[in-house]
Computed example of a mutant assay.
Amino acid sequence: MVKLIGAALIIFAGTMIGWLQAARYAARPNQIRQLIHALQRLETEIGYGFTPLPEAIARCAAHVPEPAASLLRDVNGRLGGAGEPSFRESWEAAVAAIWPNTAMRQPEQAALVRLGHNLGISDREDQLKHLKLAAQQLAFEEEAARQDSARYAKMWRSLGVLTAALIVILIL
């Protein structure tokens, strides 16, 4: 009886590990899409609303879903903090702070960090160009993430169950 309960727990744990890994693959394209949407909103605020960058970030943070909202709120909070950090420093620190809580990978992080290097230091037109470029880079990464999700999500679900079943067979 104890072996049967142990086997069931091992299979359950292996299955959950596989499903969690598959969920990360499925969440990545959605999170990239949300970042693209946030950048487009920011572009609209800056380009058509003539809104200053800190105010535009605050407005966008209120209208986009997580994790993009967390990134924008964190940037805005750091800009108003003590020591008067530059926009670049605030952006990089915010990206580094929220990144472990996302399903995104290094290429998306690199695109956002590059964007942070260019925002806030040039005129409105140049900022709009950099926002569009970052959105295009993220769109390319989104397509790659969708392909990875289609390729690997089902594999991880199956691998979790099959690995747990192998462990149970070896133990019994």
Rank of each mutant, 00 (worst) to 15 (best):
Q127W: 06
G80R: 08
A93D: 05
A23T: 09
Q109Y: 04
A96V: 06
N30H: 07
S86Q: 10
A23N: 12
E92V: 07
W19E: 13
V64A: 05
P54F: 01
F50W: 07
A164G: 12
Q137M: 04
R88C: 13
F87H: 11
E45I: 11
S70A: 14
Q137C: 02
T15G: 12
E142C: 00
P54H: 05
L115D: 01
A144Q: 01
L170I: 13
G116Q: 05
G120P: 15
G80W: 04
V2P: 13
P100K: 14
L133E: 03
L20Y: 13
S149C: 10
V64R: 02
R33G: 01
R124W: 03
A150P: 03
F12I: 12
A97Q: 11
R124D: 10
A22T: 14
P52W: 02
L20G: 09
D126V: 12
A164K: 06
A27R: 05
A150D: 07
Y48C: 06
C60A: 14
P52D: 08
W99P: 03
P100E: 08
A62L: 13
H117N: 14
K154L: 10
L119Q: 06
R151Y: 07
L170E: 04
L159V: 13
A134L: 01
L172M: 15
H117Q: 13
A165Q: 08
W156D: 01
R41N: 11
R105Q: 11
D123C: 06
A62R: 14
A97M: 10
H37K: 11
L53V: 15
G120W: 10
I17K: 04
A139H: 01
A69G: 11
V168F: 08
Y25R: 00
A8H: 06
G14T: 09
L128T: 03
K154T: 05
G160Y: 07
L9N: 07
A8S: 14
E66A: 12
G160D: 05
A82C: 01
F50S: 14
L119H: 08
P107E: 01
N118E: 15
S149D: 00
V2Q: 14
W19I: 15
A165P: 15
P54L: 01
D123T: 02
R78V: 03
V95I: 11
D126E: 14
K129N: 10
Q40G: 02
E92Y: 05
R114H: 08
R24S: 10
I32D: 00
R151V: 00
L138K: 01
G49Y: 11
E125P: 15
T44Y: 09
K154C: 00
H37D: 12
R151T: 02
Q34S: 09
G14E: 14
A27L: 07
D126A: 12
A82N: 08
F50L: 15
A145V: 02
Q106R: 13
S90W: 06
F140Q: 02
L72K: 03
G83S: 05
I10H: 11
T163H: 10
T163F: 15
Q109D: 01
A111I: 02
L4S: 09
I11T: 13
V95L: 06
L166M: 14
P52R: 00
P29F: 00
L42V: 08
E141V: 00
A153M: 04
